[in-house]
Design a binder for these strands. Sequence first.
DNA 1: CTGAACATTCAAAGATATCTGAAACTAAGT
DNA 2: ACTTAGTTTCAGATATCTTTGAATGTTCAG
Lengths: 161, 161
Amino acid sequence: MHDAEDDVDHELREQAEKLALTLSQGGMQKTTARVMTALLFSRRETMTAGELGESLRISSGAVSGAVNQLIPTGMIERVPAPGSRRDHYRFRKHAWATLMGNQNTLLASMWDAAAGGVKIAGRESLVGQRLDEMQDFYGFMQREMAALIDRWREQYDAGQA
Amino acid sequence: MHDAEDDVDHELREQAEKLALTLSQGGMQKTTARVMTALLFSRRETMTAGELGESLRISSGAVSGAVNQLIPTGMIERVPAPGSRRDHYRFRKHAWATLMGNQNTLLASMWDAAAGGVKIAGRESLVGQRLDEMQDFYGFMQREMAALIDRWREQYDAGQA
DNA sequence: CTGAACATTCAAAGATATCTGAAACTAAGT
DNA sequence: ACTTAGTTTCAGATATCTTTGAATGTTCAG
């Protein structure tokens, strides 16, 4: 006999792996991406480290490494689990907004680098102009991105209520 | 004797390498990042492949590989050079805006992945909700980011005039 | 306090990604 | 057409990143 629920699980797993591949090409570590998408596409609310390892066929060490990369970024969280001995993980609400918000650090570094260059070369020179444009762009982005994310949150929360 | 111009060059090179390091930690290839920042922080308008290789102490093959990664992204461009035998490169105007605009492809993949999952699991389920939020977020971002970049271009071009 | 059940760490192995250098190729000048 | 400056390609060498698996650490239940 054929179980429809299993099919759903299987298809979700496929989607999950596909996304993980995309993310890893975009710079995220492969195992980290796989763990993240496994939680994202799981029908369950939380998964234990053991379940993740078994489902993805990776060692406990790899799971540990991945979750410890994911947690500080705010993508997933450790959930106190009643009954179970330890460590259940779950995909966080608004994780995507958090992730994008973290990019602000990078935007700030870019701004700093540009500002540093302008200080050395002066705003008059050719290179100064080039860096000035860069500084202007990253300053703008830093301000506006933060506002944009806030706007999404409001809009989304309003839609939920 | 001490040449002030040389000092400026040297300090700019330091800043360039610092930024290249940051970018490479953020996922960009190291040599690609170094080539890009070398052009960005150069006092000259364009640099040849040979100059890049000498300045960064990398082989001609490495330079070739790096520029051919950078050009399709729109960060740098090949400039027809009168007099010189071939290939001068220069950092493009509005390169940063272009770069950020390219991110839209990624945003679209994220949206697709979410949509695919919702289709499989339905919007009612727990996982459906999770993916629905993701879809909403990336849909929003895709729309708004494009608008934001346009807004910067206008604002910047206005300020220049 | 002890033992069971996990989780974490880390050295070594394995897998990837990247660079070099030389040969092959291209195009500009004569 | 030939020469030469300069670029691209690619196999092999190198460097870097990841994973495994076993040892070590931690926490909870009894």
